[in-house]
Write a protein that binds this DNA or RNA. Structure first.
Lengths: 150, 150
DNA sequence: CCAAGGTGGTTCCTCTTGCAACCAATTTGC
DNA sequence: GCAAATTGGTTGCAAGAGGAACCACCTTGG
């Protein structure tokens, strides 16, 4: 076992600084290419992949706060990348979907996103990436089980 | 290869939400037990392990912004957990170190921190943890090489 | 039906975070 | 030995994130 009193050996610390390094790098890229922030990119990714959704559905799909989803949607709507249509089944919400320009941007982003992921994780083999995903999933599941208590 | 157009298959996304889940969980714990935020805890961890240091050294050790370090130190100082002594070698900076009460808190925190890490990563075997650390290191190195350009 | 409670969405406010400008002290170059 | 550049630290500001309160609409129980 390594010296477990060193900050640089704490897994949560390593996880945090690695995640930050990757996020910063990616945020720069999205902003430079498309003027999109990460929340906005996430919303587009879900809509482009799954098609129309309500904000509620987007909150679940992106694991973001509903306020963050709302803001991202409004920005995208203002830029004409996203449209709202009344939800006949529920007057409180709308169906959100990419507009034609939105889909165009989406199709332009995807290759860049994949290429960036490729570059970012080029240090890992295909097997290692699969394993890494699996480890992350298990850690997250564990971290989320012991939730906050009122 | 998995469907690479799903947000939930993107490694940066998985990394981000996992890191957030772990960080939130840990932040709750530190606040509940000691009223410490993560930046403050990191400073204490480094000082407790390495002994006295300047803010500059803490910035490097914790990979936090110098402003974050400064604020964390001031909070700890106000609580009497950390002391400043003039740096005879450089009048601009001070040597910061844990006070006696600070060391007491440090010794109380460490077991809890280790136990929390243990609980959080209990889904992983010892080998998997080592591997996970290694993967994180490689990813971070890669993400940091391609830095921002002016 | 209609009152009470629940839910999607929005706004407001607070707290945190990071950058940029700044001050003081030190080092470097002439 | 002093002006210029550098560095450690501090302050101020502005953007981001998240919580709580709120509105509009829906659902359920009497």
């Amino acid at each position: 076992m390594a010296n477990q009193t060193r900050l640089t050996d704490f897994l949560p610390y390593l996880l945090s600084i690695t995640s930050n390094a990757v996020s910063d790098r990616i945020a720069d890229e999205y902003r430079a290419h498309f003027g999109l922030k990460i929340p906005e990119w996430r919303v587009m990714a879900v809509l482009g992949d799954q098609g129309a959704a309500t904000q509620r559905a987007l909150v679940e799909a992106t694991r973001m706060d509903k306020v963050a989803v709302n803001r991202a949607c409004r920005v995208l709507e203002d830029r004409g990348l996203l449209g709202r249509r009344p939800n006949s089944a529920d007057g409180r919400s709308h169906h959100l979907d990419l507009t034609a320009p939105g889909q165009k941007v989406y199709r332009a982003i995807m290759p860049i996103a994949l290429e960036m992921e490729e570059r970012m994780f080029s240090a890992l083999s295909a097997d290692e990436r699969t394993l890494f995903k699996d480890l992350l999933e298990r850690i997250r599941a564990e971290a989320e089980t012991t939730g906050a208590q009122p």
